[in-house]
Computed example of a mutant assay.
Amino acid sequence: MKIQLLGNCTILLSSKNSQILFDPYFNNFGNLLYKRTTNVSNYYKDIKHLDAILLSHDHFDHMDIKFLSKFKDKCSIYAPKWSLKPLIFRSKPVWIGDKFVVGDFSITVVRANHICPAVGYIIKSEDLTLYFAGDTYYGKFMKDISEKYTINIAMLPITHYLPPMTMGERGALLCLRELNPRFLIPMHQDIIQRFQFANSTIAINELNDKIRSKKLSTKLIHLNNGEIFNINSNEIENKKAISTFKRLE
């Protein structure tokens, strides 16, 4: 399994035969209220084929209209019911509990707590179970997820705004306690508010120290934009976790 972070919450998952993309957003500017702190990876320009695009919700930093327009006739686009903007791309509406298969990936839609209709996704492939949370706060539903699935890799949106838009450091630690994933990949690290007083940055090193201090078994994998995390089920089972990174730019 190859996991590549292309900026913010844009994740490209590649198996032996299939490739799916989550929450594409490739604008380096942001908008009038939010800005990017790091340029996105240009790798997305080389993407020629996708088996599906999955959206967690329709906020600007999770759906790139230009990119989606390019792929709307080339692959299926999945988005939460009641989210309006994805309708222009003829997206397939999904909601909590829905299950479907895309190539090598078996996908289940799970709950997310956000300020608009939003979902997360459980992805199974190559004997691995991944959790793409999209934008969500910590919630008791995490316990339900942990009871149904053994999460190998959790991709969580760890940041903080005033007002808060996703889970912060405390919420992330609660999630890890509930989910007990083998690996954590933080997302949502390069979008901040233009008004600096409204931002509370999450230091990855400090988060990692707190994971250790709370004696959680999760290993934090910090991907910069464009980096790849390669993992297979043998590494999970043997607890060797021989992770490999590839920096593309």
Score class of each variant (00 low, 15 high):
Leu12Asp: 03
Ser15His: 06
Lys16Thr: 09
Asn17Gly: 03
Asp23Tyr: 07
Tyr25Trp: 14
Asn27Met: 07
Asn31Trp: 10
Asn42Asp: 14
Ala52Phe: 09
Leu54Pro: 00
Leu55Gly: 00
His57Gly: 03
His59Trp: 13
Met63Leu: 15
Ser69Ile: 00
Phe71Arg: 02
Asp73Gly: 02
Cys75Lys: 11
Ser76Arg: 12
Ser76Lys: 15
Ile77His: 06
Ile77Gln: 01
Lys81Phe: 12
Trp82Gly: 01
Leu84Met: 09
Lys85His: 09
Phe89Leu: 05
Phe100Pro: 00
Asp104Cys: 03
Thr108Val: 12
Arg111Tyr: 15
Ala112Arg: 02
His114Thr: 01
Cys116Tyr: 05
Pro117Phe: 11
Lys124Pro: 00
Glu126Trp: 05
Tyr131His: 06
Glu147Lys: 14
Tyr149Thr: 03
Thr150Asn: 15
Ile153Asn: 01
Ile158Ala: 08
Gly168Arg: 03
Leu176His: 09
Leu176Ser: 07
Pro181Ala: 07
Gln193Cys: 08
Phe195Asn: 11
Asn199His: 05
Ser213Asp: 13
Lys215His: 15
Leu220Gln: 04
Leu223Glu: 02
Gly226Trp: 10
Asn230Arg: 09
Glu235Gly: 02
Lys239His: 10
Ala241Cys: 08
Ala241Val: 03
Ile242Phe: 10
Arg247Ala: 08
Glu249Phe: 15
